[in-house]
Structure formats: structure tokens, C-alpha cells
Design a protein around this nucleic acid. Sequence first.
DNA 1: AGCACGCCGACT
DNA 2: GTCGGCGTGCTC
Length: 746
Amino acid sequence: MNNQLYTDVLVEVPGLQTDRTYQYQVPPRLAGILQFGHRVKVPFGKQKITGFVVGFNEQKAVPGVKEIIGLVDENPLFRAEQLTLARWLADYYFCSTVKALQSVIGPALKKTAARSVARLYSAVGPEQLPLLQEQLARSPKKLAVLETALQHPGLDKRALAAVSGASLPVINQLCAGGQLRVETELLARDPYPQYEAVRQAPVTLTTEQGRSVQAITAALQQGEHRVFMLHGVTGSGKTEVYLRCIEQVLSTGRQAITLVPEIALTPQMVRLYKARFGRAVAVLHSRMSDGERYDEWMRIDSGSAPVVLGVRSAILAPVPDPGLIIIDEEHEPSYKQEEAPRYHARAVALYRAQKNRGVLVLGSATPSLESYCRTLSGGEYTLLNMPCRVKGKNMPDVQLVDMRREVQSGNSGIFSLLLLQKLRSRLHNKEQAIIFLNRRGFKTLVVCRECGLVLKCPRCEISLTYHTDGRLRCHYCNYQVQALQRCPDCGSSQVGYFGTGTQRVEMELTAHLPGARILRMDADTTTRKGSHEQILAAFASGEADILVGTQMVAKGLDLPGVTLVGVINADSTLHMPDFRAGERTFQLLAQVAGRTGRGDEPGEVLIQTFTPEHYAVQAAARHNYQAFFYKELGLRKEMGYPPFAKMVRILVYGRDEAAVQQAAEKIRAQLDRFAEGLSGGRIMIIGPAPAPLARLKEDYRWHIILWSADYRQLRLVMQQFAQASHGTLPGKALKMSIDVDPMYTM
DNA sequence: AGCACGCCGACT
DNA sequence: GTCGGCGTGCTC
């Protein structure tokens, strides 16, 4: 259908960040065969590289046009919509189109030889058996094989050998001689073959669930683009709402994508979907083999799996007509890809839903500020509230312990007296407890242990970080001040640095509670695959009294035998040098506070903190999202941070610190020049400053952060910069990354 | 990424 | 005088 002579190819050259296509001549032997979406081998300079066919021409555009060498795959790998999506990604996130395309068609590129079986059939019919017996009188093994093949058609080689008692070479001879016919059958890998659709007794929806389902299905029937924010506390039954809505969208002949965070995509979750939709479900997650993912991808592409359940990258799946996209736990930072293209699955979902007149449902107990503020009056999202737990379970009691008082009364240990007392009573009653250590803080954080003051940058409201040169620095703008001996607020000399590890907690716990059986779960004890589950299983079966762990225990908090959860340092994430520190602390504490007490016993939560009056801590303790939201929103507005602005972060990194700093300074000067030429909304540019993670894997890291309420202006600056730099830096040892809407500024 | 072109220092 | 340093630029 295309008698085109020339083709546009998007080339894949490492180190070359270009959105240009290159024209190649179509050799006669590929005329009529070469199609849009084909992966091809092409000459490029002196090398041979791969590229993707993205267009055709009748006319030569370049005098020295070269010829395509050949096809890499038999079939095209993508359709026009997928290229459009890749182009959007490349444009929005300032990365090369090939890189974006490679992400969009990821699994298709990793095509592994599909598993197949060679089934064997006798080439002669049973009526010829007497004749065979005569012919093969001197080859009893061959005869036995053919007789077996007649009796049991369709065995594979090994089975045929076993049943007939012959060896494999005999069978191979028969195949070669044509007496056995070989049929190759492709096996589709099904990663979850054991979960088939089972009819269940229909669940009766709560009033709130019913209302939410009705609102969403009504929109689905209208076939209009809408966005719903499903704000439901943990245990309010959001999943059932999702399943009902998917049923509805399937009935209109369209498809649904559900995204869940990595840790939530457990076998139980898959079982739930498979039980409702059976083989219609395709699952995509990072622990699958390339082959399994490829098979699921193809089932999606062909339309035979209209229900997609997966992690972040599933938002790129080749679903033909996604009428419904659901993002569960939409606030989770794992939806942001931390390598190019640095996309946020929620942003991609919004794009696809808009383009496709689809419905987007964002579910969370602790919605991101970005999303929730769009439900306010005048916003474009519709809020659906589900404030109650199903079956009338109550939220657990949360108590705050002021650690400053503990210090004042002479207890400078990790544990408050109250926590120790409660732990002892749990041990006595043979109940279990979890100690949650919010460790992801910085040892270099400066805190007054008397009044709880944390030193902050006067310009950025970001916590200052202690450097070994004795100075305190802001990792946003590079503000510096000499380290203080005394607290500037209360004059106390009890100024110290934060940092408590799980090992130390475990040790001190053993000292305080001799005889208690303690399990530790953190990055050190969960290196092996599955060790995470093993530790939780051991704890669930009562092999230990206390489980000590970091973030990752948060998902194991549903254990019914647990009646106490203790949080050691609620503050440590609070004062991370990041503008989202408060939001992340609230989300974490709210999650902890919301997850216990699912058994019959009411759960109890104890949060130790140096700043009990902090709004994020207070709101989490009271299960009050609104209180947190409005306070945080006010602060963001004051500072002009997202969601009131769009933010872009440029990170420069490399082995040579001086070169890194110099390059970062050059970039800053360049950005200033680009920004100067614009009239419009103001663009804030700070840095270059050493990134909070100033050194990572041998590389020194400096960054520049830009933000503006006027996103178009910011884009104009960035577009000029991206064009000028081509995504690369002069000097071989220097690297750069551009992060649009960064989740972390570390 | 490779590989060319191109303009300044120490060698036969 | 030339050989070669790797800075800058291009690859259909």
C-alpha cells in the first residue's frame, strides 16, 4: 500500500539527543513490505545502528541519502497513537523522542523467543500399520515410536521417547525421514494461570460506595472526559468501587487500566481482579520476566485483555480505547519514573484520558496536594468522599508523645517511658507490637533537643544541612551560615544531629525488654527476593513479639495480632531538605495511623515526636486530612511552590566536583539569559547549589531549580535550553538530567 | 557514541 | 618544518 521511495527514521544513537528524523532510501526488496513502526538497521556515519520508521516520502530530501540495510523484526512495533504519545512525553519531559518511544513500546523491544512445543504426529495412518511392521522389522525402536505416535498423537519429543522406550536420536531420525510430522505450537505464558474467574456472591455496597460508583458510571455512560478524586480512608472499600466501574466500561466495549504502586501489586490484588475478570486481565509489573511481560503486552495490544492491572509503566500499555483509567494511591511517589523519560504516570493518565475522552479516577486516603486542590471550587476534578470504613470499624486511637519533655526529665534515650510501658504490657498480654522507624532523614539535620527547633533557610524554608566544614547550607539556594553552638531560639546547648538506625533501636529494645523476641525489617535484612514476605510471615505466625522496621513495615501493618504501633521519630522526614517534606510526613503517619485496628481488637498508635504541635503530625494523629491540606496549601502559596507553580530541576553530576560546579554555573548563566528575553510571568531560578544528596555513587551532584506560576514562560526557557544543550554537556565526564515536576529535590 | 576536522605545543 | 593534543560538530 505504500509505494514510497524514501522513509523517515528516528535513529537510536546513544549520546545523541535529537528529535530529528533521518531520511533513508527504501531498497526495492523492501518496497511494499516496510511499514510505519518497523524497527530497521541503517547506516549512520560509519556505524550501523537501529532506528524506527516513522514516515514516508516520495521525494528525496538529502542529496547523499543512504539505503536501509534491513528489518530487525518481521512486524511493526508500534502504531501512530503510540508515536504521538512518545512525542508528547519527549516534549513535556524534555527528553529525546527515541528514548520516549523506547519507553512507550518497552516490552515489544524485549521480544524473547516465544516458548513453543514441537508436537509430533505419525505421517502415516493406522491402516498402514501392517505395512510398517514389515518395513521396519529390523528397527523395532522406530516401529515402537510410530505405533506410540499413532496411539497418542501430539506428544512432544521427550514424552514420545519416554512412552515408546526409544531414545531421542531415533525420533530425530524419523522426523528427518519424514515418517513423523512436526507441528510447532506457541505457548502463551500466563503468569497467573491458577487464578480463573470465579463467580462470587455479589458484595453489597455501602451507601458511600454506591454513590461513588453511580457518579463514575454515569460519566462513563456519557462518554465524556472527567476526573474523579476518590478520597477514601484506608479500609473504606475503594477497590470494590474500581471493580464495579471496570465492569461498566467493559460493557461499553472500551478498556480499563488500573495502576497500583509497586508494593500494592501483590498476588492477593491480582487474585481479586482475576476472580472478577478472569483471562480478560493482563498484569504488568517489574518482577515479571521479559517474556511474560511481552505476552501480556501482546494480549493488550490485540484487545484480548481489556483489563490492565499494573505498576507505573502500565500507563503506556497499548490499550486501544481506554475508557477508564484508575490510579490507586495516587499520591505515591513511585508513580514518578526516576530516569528519562522522567514521567509521572498521573500526568500521562491525564493526557491519555483527555485525548481519548476517558474517565480518570484518582484514589487515595491522603491525596497529593496537586490533585486535591483541583477538586476545590472552580477546579476541574470531582470529589467523591468515602470517610467511613466498611463494617463500621473505627479508626485507631493515636497518641502523641512529646520527646522534648522526655529529654527535660532526664530520659535522653530513643524510647519514651510511655512507649516502654505499653510495650511491657503487650509482652505481658502476649500481644504483638510494631516499632516503626521513620528513618529516611538526614544525620546532618540540625535540631535543638530542648525546644525542637530545626534550623531553616531564611529564603527557602528548607532545612539547613550540616557540612563537615562546619557550615550549615541550604541545598536549594546555597545559602550558608556558620554552625551554631547554641540554639538561636532557646539558648540551649543541646543542639545535635538527627539519625537513629534500626539496629540501634533493636539493640536498645533488647536492653530495655530482656526476653522479648524481636524481628528487624529494613534494607539490610530484606536484600534477598522474598525475604520481605518471609519476615512478615514469621511475625504473623507469632515467632516474634516486636517487629522493628522502616517504611517497608507500613504495608505489613494489617496484621490482626498487632495491637500497638510505635513511631520513633515522626520528625525525621518532616525536616528533609525538600518542599514536600511535610506532605510526605503526613502521608506516612496517616498511613500508619490508619492501618492498625483492622482485627477485632482496637489498635493503638503512639507517635514520638519533637514537634507534636506541627500541623502535619497533629493532622495525622487526628485522621484529619482537611486540616493538613489547608495548612500546607497556605504555606505552598506563600512560598510560591507547587501546586501554585510548575517546577523543573536540572541536575549536573560527575566525578570532578570543580567541573560539575563550573558546568552548573554556566547553565545558570544560560538560563538567566533565556529568561531575560521573556516578558510574562516571573521565573524563579535558584542555585546552582550542591544537591542534598551531594555525592552519590562517586558522582558529585549540583542542581538548579526553576519554578514559575506561568508554566508557558518556564517552558519557553527550558525549550531554548534543551535545544541549545541537546541534552548533553561539554566534557565527557559530565552528565545532566532534566526533571519536570520533580518528586524529590535531593 | 564514533569519527572527522581543526587549530596550537614538542619532536625528527 | 611535521606529528599529534583533544575541543567542536556531524552523522540521512
